[in-house]
Write a protein that binds this DNA or RNA. Structure first.
Length: 319
RNA sequence: GCACGGGUAGCUUAGUCAGGACUAAAGCAACAGACUGAAAAUCUGAAGAUCGGGAGUUCGAAUCUCUCCCCCGUGCA
């Protein structure tokens, strides 16, 4: 009895993951015992049922109201393909890997039970890894009060604290990273130690497809995308978010477009800097994403512009 | 053209007044890397400069003097 298959489409920002996911979802023409088959044309007719559903793996698209700036897929672009894990949290609150994993597990189960193919699509490597490697992280809720208190301390002080609480974790932690240190202290204070992360074999078989583009082409796409987002009213979106109570501080922490949009709205940077910083930030982000992905040797990489090749490959792979 | 201001890593600058541990510092970029309930976040590392060129004064010059070159700014023509 083979495991149910789950498709994963990943890659850096702006390679065209969302489009491909929808296309693949639409090109599945049948399922044999839970295994998809593909149509010759690669296009479903309006009458045939959609047999793939997309689960977003994007740490910012989970938030409501962050639409233009995150490049969230629109209803029209979905072309009838159901999407999960979009708009599940208010941006004033903090989402987490654990939550994503929990929701995603439920979504996969649900999609499979209806005889369809789950397609995880996104660029947040940590989220994807959490489900592919079936990681169990310590079950300690965020203590915002504690975090606030600890955030006033220096990294040296934090490191010393952790060392006292859990010398083992202190040994391999990044001693200069406040975010990591605070989280480790939070866990150690509740559990006594920071337990080792458990990796359990997943009940699913994940097929990870990575999309890449030449750096110059990616850069061009990022540039073009920025212009189109500005035209679509990204600035107004940020204003709307702030008007609805999202602090600039929080907006800055959301990163990339929102970080610089927040700075611009506070008049800390000029319009020219806004554009430059967003573009640069995205290019750097794409590199960081690749840095993460390239560790996972199970990912099969394809040129993002060669969709036909990918579909052909999947046709074999999924059978 | 004359006068004053300016020329220090790819970029923006600190240091020049009062020469000395300057064997030239920082931020950003570029490059490499980490990541285990914040991941578009957070963090690390190494590299990078004959201090515009030359001459001089001095034990010692990015720093003082002379001279040449370059760009911009302001004033005078």
């Amino acid at each position: 009895m083979s495991k149910p298959k789950v498709l994963v489409i990943l890659g850096p920002t702006a390679v065209g993951k969302s489009d491909l996911a929808v296309e693949i979802a639409l090109s599945i023409t049948g399922l044999k015992r839970g295994i998809p088959t593909f149509g010759r044309t690669g296009e479903s007719t309006s009458k045939s049922p959609v047999l793939g559903e997309v689960i977003s793996a994007d740490s910012r698209q989970v938030y409501t109201g962050l639409d233009i700036g995150t490049g969230k897929i629109t209803k029209k672009e979905m072309r009838g393909v159901p999407h999960h894990l979009l708009d599940v949290m208010n941006p004033k609150k903090v989402f987490s890997v654990e939550l994503w994993k929990k929701y995603t597990e439920a979504a996969i189960k649900d999609i499979l039970s209806r005889g369809k193919l789950p397609i995880i699509c996104g660029g947040t490597g940590f989220y994807i890894q959490s489900i592919v490697d079936n990681i169990t992280l310590p079950d300690v809720p965020a203590d915002l009060k504690l975090r606030k208190k600890l955030s006033l301390k220096s990294t040296d002080e934090l490191f010393l604290m952790l060392k006292k609480l859990d010398p083992k974790r202190a040994k391999n932690i990044d001693a200069k990273n406040p975010v990591r240190l605070i989280r480790a202290i939070e866990i150690a204070q509740t559990l006594g130690t920071v337990p080792k992360v458990k990796k359990v074999k997943s009940q699913y078989e994940f097929i990870q497809i990575g999309l890449t583009l030449l750096p110059e082409i990616l850069r061009e796409k990022i540039h073009a995308r920025l212009l189109s987002r500005m035209k679509k009213g990204m600035l107004a979106e940020a204003q709307r978010l702030h008007a609805s109570g999202l602090s600039y501080k929080r907006m800055e922490a959301l990163g990339l477009e929102y970080r610089y949009l927040a700075l611009y709205l506070q008049k800390k940077i000029s319009k020219k800097e806004l554009a430059e910083q967003i573009e640069l930030g995205n290019v750097q982000y794409a590199r960081r994403q690749m840095q993460w992905f390239k560790r996972d040797k199970r990912i099969e990489w394809f040129d993002g512009e060669k969709k036909a090749t990918i579909k052909k490959h999947l046709k074999q792979k999924l059978f």
